[in-house]
Amino acid sequence: MRAILTLAGLAFFSAPALADTMEVGVEIPRLNVAEYHRPYLAAWIANPDNTVAANLAVWYQQERGAEGEGETWLKDLRQWWRRAGRDLDMPIDGVSGPTQAPGSHSMRFDTGSAALSALEPGDYVLTVEAVREVGGREMVQIPFTWPAKGAAPVTVSGDTELGAITLTFVDDK
């Protein structure tokens, strides 16, 4: 289920300046099911030993609704919950967000952001995990090296709960 693609093979396409912005594209697929609930989703930067270098986003129901407290289901993002969630005090400024509808969503992080400003040079894995009520769970990973050079976007697609996950490094300067 876990799709991995390396950036290494793409590095020779271009040799531009170091990128100062990371763009993460997340596609939530439109599913033809009788009962649909938007997925809970977590995106984070993982170290090679699976510890968490930075949390990028956690999309969940932050308000108490008819189904009870949304945080009840955060543990179903089971890899994120184990690696980060259970040690965090939710919500987190700039990370927590509401659930999103099917479609393409884009997040931008510049070198001044909380996620990237403290990121040491090294190898990392962008990880996106989604789980849906009365649905399934899926995790997609894209390895990268930081600092990154501006290069062609890398896309890895999920099969069930996630569509295309795209990682792009751009130099905005």
Binding site: E69, E71, T72, W81, R86
Partner: peptide
């Protein structure tokens, strides 16, 4: 075995 939230 594993729970999240304020109380369960």
């Amino acid at each position: 075995f594993t729970l999240s939230g304020d109380a369960q």
